[in-house]
């Protein structure tokens, strides 16, 4: 019966981030946090594996304001959540994040299976699963669209652009899953209520035995600028669609975009 750990990231919802036209900085004041979209697929997959094979699902995150995330995570079928809540996460790159998660996993592990999403919806670094596997000395498999567990054997189907590949693993592994691996179920009322009674544990970053250097990012941001779209924004919204259509066709004709007549 596998003991599974899912890594998740508590990220700003990009839909609520606005670009300030002056200086193109990002206004995140309206943005709420969410579980990174694809991490929900990773959680869902862990829960499905346990529904089939027995075992347990725990989740872990390195970030800030993590307490707010517990209810959502625990209502998705996770048994226990670990949080490393630290302001160091604000400027952490994948190097630091992987160091922190690997150190925490050494403390609370071992796990038969560690699941990550292939990338997070904010920075989409696509590194954590691979880095964790290297740091923990475990097989690491990315871009996985299907997982089958049998005893201590795992088969993972990868999607690699021009081919699919099945990888068989004996023993523990770190697997990064693609969003297409499953459809995420919406937690039931019962699950949401039960979540409040499930355990959570905070792990202090100082207790992980990491050196200052291991917590110092290698990649630092010099600037972040909103991507500007300079478009004509001519929108036809008359009640009469025939009018709108002929105006649009006239505009497209001017742009030289109508099909040449042979």
């Amino acid at each position: 019966m596998p003991r599974i750990l899912v890594c998740y990231k508590w990220v700003l919802d990009e839909q609520d981030i606005k670009i300030v036209s002056l200086g193109l900085s990002l206004d995140v004041s309206r943005a709420k946090y969410k579980i990174s979209d694809y991490d929900k697929n990773a959680i869902e997959e862990a829960v499905r594996i346990v529904e089939k094979n027995g075992g347990s699902v725990e989740a872990i995150s390195f970030g800030t304001s993590l307490k707010q995330s517990f209810k959502d995570v625990l209502s998705r079928g996770v048994d226990k959540v670990y949080a490393i809540d630290s302001s160091i996460a604000e400027n952490a790159d994948a190097y630091v994040t992987a160091n922190v998660l690997a150190a925490a996993i050494r403390k609370i592990g071992p796990y038969d299976l560690i699941l990550c999403a292939d990338g997070s919806s904010d920075v989409y670094n696509q590194q954590i699963g691979s880095r964790l596997s290297a740091l923990l000395g475990l097989p690491g498999i990315t871009s996985v669209s299907q997982i089958n567990c049998e005893g201590d054997r795992i088969s993972a189907t990868r999607k690699l652009g021009d081919c699919t590949e099945v990888v068989h693993i004996k023993g523990q592994a770190v697997i990064s899953v693609l969003p297409e691996i499953n459809s995420v179920r919406i937690p039931t009322m019962k699950q949401v209520l039960a979540a409040a009674k499930k355990p959570s544990e905070e792990i202090k970053i100082d207790a992980l035995g990491l050196s200052d250097a291991e917590l110092l990012p290698k990649v630092t941001k010099v600037s972040v600028k909103g991507f500007v779209m300079n478009r004509k924004n001519i929108v036809f919204k008359d009640a009469n669609q025939k009018d709108n259509v002929s105006k649009l066709v006239a505009s497209l004709a001017k742009e030289g975009l109508l099909k040449e007549r042979g």
């Binding site: 994948a94 590194q127 290297a134 990315t142 990649v219």
Partner: peptide, 22 residues
């Protein structure tokens, strides 16, 4: 930046203790 390349790069970065930009 293929799926394989990204995996390999991240594993190499972890082993070197290096930063990696995706």
């Amino acid at each position: 930046g293929t799926p394989r390349g990204k995996d390999i790069a991240a594993k190499v970065a972890a082993k070197l203790g290096a930063g990696l930009v995706t």
